[in-house]
């Protein structure tokens, strides 16, 4: 069942396309990483989903309801953590929770005190005196206290220490296990790689990848280090298709290989090689290619949409 569905979503500010014909979806019980550099359109997309911004064209639905028209009904089942948590300076954590619970017309404080406990948060400090990390924890509690069916978290770990990051990851994994869905916006590939099952990557407002992390990994390039005999590094036009030079140093070639290993081995067998190292698939390189704005106009810029994952995940 699709929890979030985005179809040809577009939002412009003047001539700038903040979100440009974006299409992706998120299925129930999945943890989706929402990746992209600054200005890629992540926050704009999230704000459209929350009903804070109106899209110019396209559709955004959550739980099968229209993100703008049915935003009140959607927000009953949704929790949101903004990228930069801003709280009422005169209220403490407890008062924020009481306010949110009362505004939501909840009979009690829901999951708030359990979350405060696991996040080791002192609820009696006023927001004015809270550190960024404490504010982030209060924001997380406000997003999660009503056990929402969909959690939208915009860089939730940016102010958390590593211990608390793991507490949060565990909490999110447990939420997904019981069928709740998480949209996790982040800059950090490592974070998304370790936590999420699916990924949507945005660049310049466009979706450049919408797939499962595993699929992405299989498409990722491998780093290759080749040491040639007697400085005999072949020129670029003699390299096989799929092998891209990163740099050369004396008789050593540092390159990226995208393709089947056996094709590389076949070519290597014909070369005067002293030593060859083939590293495991490196998602970082693939992401850097996605992030590289120079590559935007290039025909070689990768785009990845698969039907077995984020786009049409089970």
């Amino acid at each position: 069942m699709k929890i979030v569905s985005v179809e040809s979503l577009t939002k412009c500010y003047g001539d700038n396309h903040a979100v440009d014909e974006a299409t992706w979806s998120l299925s129930q019980g999945r943890l989706l990483g929402f990746l992209g550099p600054n200005g890629a359109g992540k926050t704009t997309t999230i704000r459209i989903l929350l009903g804070l911004l109106k899209c110019d064209s396209g559709d955004a639905t959550i739980f099968g309801m229209h993100a703008w028209q049915d935003s009140v009904a959607i927000r009953k089942r949704l929790g949101y953590l903004p990228g930069d948590v801003r709280l009422y300076p005169d209220l403490n954590g407890r008062q924020h929770i009481q306010f949110a619970a009362a505004a939501r017309k909840m009979p009690d404080m829901g999951d708030a005190y359990r979350l405060a406990d696991i996040f080791q948060l002192d609820l009696d400090t006023t927001a004015r005196n809270c550190s960024k990390g404490m504010r982030q924890k209060i924001g997380l509690i406000l997003a999660m206290l009503h056990k929402p069916d969909l959690l939208i978290l915009d860089e939730p770990t940016s102010a958390l220490d590593p211990l608390m990051q793991h507490v949060l990851y565990e909490e999110l994994r447990n939420a997904a296990k019981v069928g709740r869905t998480v949209l996790f916006s982040s800059h950090s590939l490592a974070e998304v790689e370790s936590l999420c099952e699916d990924v949507v990557i945005l660049r310049n407002g466009k979706v450049v990848a919408s797939t499962a992390i595993e699929t992405l990994r299989s498409k990722a390039p491998q780093r290759v280090i080749l040491r040639f005999k007697e400085h005999h590094i072949p020129p670029a036009d003699e390299l096989p298709t799929g092998l891209t030079t990163i740099r050369t140093q004396n008789s050593t070639l540092h390159a990226r290989w995208q393709g089947l290993p056996r094709d590389l081995f076949s070519w290597l067998a014909t070369q005067p090689i002293d030593d060859a190292v083939l590293e495991p698939p490196n998602l970082e390189d693939l992401f850097l290619e996605f992030y590289d704005t120079k590559g935007c106009e290039s025909k070689n810029t990768p785009e990845l949409h698969t039907s077995d994952s984020g786009r049409n995940a089970p």
């Binding site: 929350l50 009903g51 804070l52 009140v72 009904a73 927000r75 009953k76 949704l78 949101y80 903004p82 801003r86 709280l87 009422y88 924020h96 949110a100 505004a103 939501r104 406000l142």
Partner: peptide, 8 residues
Amino acid sequence: DLLLTLPV
């Protein structure tokens, strides 16, 4: 962001 993401 806190206020307008409540179900109100």
